[in-house]
Computed example of a mutant assay.
Amino acid sequence: MARVIEGQAPFQDGFTWYRLVEPDTPSSALPLVVLHGGPGMASNYLHNLAELADETGRAVVLYDQFGCGRSTHRPEAPTDFWGVQLFVDEHHSLMRHLGIEKYHLLGQSWGGMLAAELAVRGLRPASLAICNSPASMELWLKGAADLRAQLPKETREALDKHEKAGTHEDPEYLAATHEFYIRHVVRQDPFPQDFQDSEAQCAADPTVYRTLNGPNEFHVVGTFKDWTITERLAQIKDVPTLVAAGEHDEATPITWQPFVDGIAGATSHVFEGCSHCCHLEQPEEFRRVIGAFLQQHDA
């Protein structure tokens, strides 16, 4: 049975909450560090990835990024406080606190974007798994528009009406949003409890999500709306990279293909029948694919 250690690592004038899961039978396998999405969703919905500890004999680290979940919140912070550099600095600070130097890095959704930013800025993990992530928000919005056009007419009209009016909390708008989510975010209704837990903590303090993203996954009006890493991907060198996505993912192929094209040697894997949260929809298959990739690059 894996051993779970939870703690708080000092960061800024607060702390980063983390969960370190150590395998029952340790091995020489390198640790896996997991970056959650959102931005602002916290790590709850990724907790089943901790099963990779016993399945692959490696430590697994999950943590709630600053402003999220069980880490320090700063709802009063100015908009420019929340930027990529904050989360880059936090990641390095946590690794120093835990004494982890060489490790695999997996990022899901926004976490994959952050993982790519870390690699572009000089981090050389043993491997890089970019899961369900866009290489630019312009491409993300284009893909979302294509998926949105496939929604029922009354759903599209409800979205358009409330976005024009700014009434994003109206029950009709939330219901229309849910229709998009069960098609392209988590294809389970009701959503898994871990996902509901992440949604609940984000709703309790939506500062990070609303500031960087916007009211939901496809109406991106936050400060990250112009984010892109496409032209910088060639700076990632000598890092084995797997790009993963779901067949029905809101991260459509046009959003993640630049990672495959731009990172030397990168490969891709599409989980059939899955959407944005492949690890929740097909957890065993997701961990099998990721586990095999990690073991391939442990040396």
Results as ranks from 00 to 15, higher is better:
142 K>Q: 15
142 K>F: 02
143 G>D: 00
146 D>W: 00
152 P>F: 08
154 E>V: 05
155 T>E: 06
155 T>Q: 07
158 A>P: 10
158 A>S: 15
158 A>M: 13
161 K>Y: 14
162 H>R: 06
162 H>I: 13
164 K>P: 05
164 K>G: 00
167 T>L: 13
167 T>Q: 04
171 P>D: 11
175 A>W: 08
176 A>V: 06
179 E>L: 11
181 Y>W: 13
181 Y>A: 06
184 H>E: 04
185 V>H: 10
186 V>W: 01
186 V>D: 07
188 Q>E: 15
188 Q>F: 14
189 D>G: 10
196 Q>K: 02
196 Q>L: 12
196 Q>D: 06
196 Q>Y: 04
201 Q>I: 13
201 Q>F: 12
203 A>C: 06
207 T>C: 00
209 Y>A: 12
210 R>Y: 02
214 G>T: 09
214 G>N: 07
221 V>A: 03
225 K>A: 04
233 L>T: 09
235 Q>C: 04
236 I>E: 03
239 V>P: 04
244 A>N: 02
245 A>K: 03
246 G>S: 00
247 E>H: 13
247 E>P: 01
251 A>S: 04
251 A>D: 05
251 A>C: 14
257 Q>M: 11
257 Q>H: 09
258 P>N: 12
258 P>G: 08
275 S>H: 02
276 H>N: 08
279 H>V: 03
280 L>C: 08
